[in-house]
Computed example of a mutant assay.
Amino acid sequence: MASQESLRQAFLGFLAAREDSCARSCEAGHLTASAVVLDADASHVLLTLHPRVGRWLQLGGHCEPSDESLAEAALREATEESGIEGLWIEPEPVHLDVHPITCSLGVPTRHFDVRFTVRAPRGAQPVRSDESDDLRWWPVNAMPPGSEELTELVAAAL
């Protein structure tokens, strides 16, 4: 947990230093919001096969000017990418991560990703969007090969 506290302090410093820290045009890096979508029993997690990254990941993305909070951005992204209505979000973040990426700017940058737990209503069936090569429920204790880095994140969400 010490590394999460160190990341929290780094995020706060970045936010204090950059007024544009939530805008994807901020080339130094920008905040993003992710959603660990769990089913009603918290026995399955919804993962997307990301087309550019080529790996199974949690749902999420960039903040939009209309988002009033990171939690709102995470819930909006989860709803858009899952096609599931009636999702609800835990308002406190459960995990932080910083990773290098070349996103829509086309230049190397960093995502300061703030991750939230989102719950789906019982029986929710996801509908894949154009932002995904595949979208499916995975048992929380048997996620797809190559997704080992999500173990800590899913555990934090649970």
Rank of each mutant, 00 (worst) to 15 (best):
P144Y: 08
D134F: 03
P126H: 06
V98C: 09
I89Y: 02
F116T: 05
L12G: 07
L135G: 05
V36S: 04
V140S: 05
E131G: 00
S147I: 13
C63G: 02
I84K: 05
D41V: 00
L105A: 00
P145R: 11
D134H: 13
Q9C: 07
L75T: 07
D134G: 07
I89F: 05
G83K: 08
E80F: 13
M1T: 05
S34W: 05
P65T: 06
G106L: 08
V98H: 03
R119S: 09
S129Q: 09
A2C: 02
S6V: 01
M143L: 14
P144F: 00
W56K: 07
P144A: 05
S3K: 15
V140H: 08
G86D: 04
L150N: 06
D20F: 13
R24K: 12
S21H: 06
P108M: 08
E19M: 07
T102Y: 00
A2H: 11
R115M: 14
E19D: 02
A74E: 11
G146E: 10
D97R: 12
P139D: 07
V154Q: 11
A16M: 14
I89G: 12
A120I: 06
S129M: 01
L12V: 06
E72H: 12
P93F: 10
R52L: 10
A124K: 07
F11L: 14
C26R: 12
H95C: 12
L158G: 09
